[in-house]
Design a protein around this nucleic acid. Structure first.
Lengths: 222, 222
DNA sequence: TATCTTTATGACCAGGTAGTCATACTTAGA
DNA sequence: TCTAAGTATGACTACCTGGTCATAAAGATA
């Protein structure tokens, strides 16, 4: 948790600091990201950081918190019950995710790279924790779909949950792989990852849904 | 490429060095792995490393080469044409992959963590390159299956190829996630990742095949 | 204006890194 | 046994990191 000193700062300075570190941590793994470089870039003293935060990890966790909170405002209200089947719901999550990205590019990019940048040995436990949480979330979704008879039940929940999680991740990675989006350049130029690419994203989402739907949906004759 | 000096070394010393660095790079990202630590551990001078290799990257690439060559001996002879459908072929790759692991634990573990440990900024290009190659390989497979009418053709090849690649990766990650295997501990104790777990691995492979088969296979009425 | 509290600073510390290089040691051949 | 080529060494450089802390500056209160 940030110290009181940081919270007392006026918003513009808080934003200056937050944004600068979001940028750093969005580009480099935790262990490689350098506080020294960032403070030089924004022209504040190294010592100040330690008036604001306990240590590097404290700062990092603060950023995670900020971004998660923001994103939740965009997708927190989306509920499964408002959609006829899981895939409409799944699709909606992406649609509102784009909105989050367009309006909060830096935060979006930070979250985008989060899992990747957590691969540093010194915070391995955090990675494990977050992955576990994500996977558990998808497992819950699958469990529900199986319960209401929309998803097949001949495959272990864990397998379906994990695969679904992977599908979610793969869509974004696909767009990077095939040069539709370029997070690195987006961060440099400070433009939203999906700016002008919402259509292409949703088309890809649809392709993936079309592809994996038969894997999850219960066959009509079962 | 290693320098001649390294190649002149007698095998036992070469193996000592190779194994020690495989261990280091199997545990830590490229940028975090420390040559200094390794040379201390095996009791040779830091300078010696630079008599053997150009630099850290040269050493790393040597390790990649060694492991790839070994693994190829195990799965290079497996050909699609020897199997009735893609999924038997896919399954066979895993089966022989286990054999490679059991007989070359260290190399297996190094390759296992390779993609993950390539996330270091200083070798981002290498990551990109290898990913590209892997994905291209899976795309070729898909293309072939579509051509012979076994895979559906209503989804872009790129999407199917990338998804298939992800399925391959996901199986291993699944086993970590659900504590069936534990590469980190295996490396510490120097035992094969899949020792005594071949059955569980193949069961999981079968689950994933069973799950994703309907996504890829052409429907009989199409 | 004088006092007290909060905030900002940057030199400094201990510890780490990849890579260099002159020197010493080994080995092989004559 | 002497020489020459190959191999091993570790102190050293230049540079980086996260984190500390006494001190200075700024703000608020009276």
């Amino acid at each position: 948790m940030p110290k009181q000193t940081f919270l007392n700062l006026d918003e513009s300075k808080r934003k200056l600091i937050t944004d600068a570190f979001l940028r750093e941590f969005a580009t480099k793994p935790f262990d490689v990201a350098s506080l020294t470089v960032v403070v030089k870039k924004i022209g504040i003293a190294k010592g100040s950081i330690y008036q604001y935060f306990e240590d590097k990890l404290d700062l990092f966790l603060y950023l995670v918190g900020v971004c998660s909170t923001t994103k939740f405002k965009y997708i927190g209200h989306i509920e499964r019950k408002d959609y006829p089947d899981f895939w409409f719901y799944f699709r909606a999550l992406y649609e509102h995710g784009v909105q989050f990205d367009l309006e909060n590019p830096l935060q979006s990019q930070f979250l985008f790279q989060l899992m990747e940048n957590l691969h540093s040995p010194s915070i391995k436990h955090l990675y494990q924790e977050m992955l576990e949480q994500s996977v558990a979330g998808f497992e819950e979704m699958v469990k529900h779909e199986v319960a209401i008879g929309l998803f097949r039940k001949d495959i272990p929940i864990q397998v379906m949950g994990f695969m679904l999680y992977k599908v979610g991740v793969s869509i974004q990675e696909h767009l990077i792989q095939f040069r539709v989006i370029n997070p690195k350049i987006s961060i440099e130029k400070n433009i939203p990852i999906y700016k002008g690419k919402k259509d292409k994203l949703m088309l890809t989402v649809d392709h993936y849904i079309q592809l994996v739907k038969p894997s999850f949906d219960k066959k009509s004759n079962q």
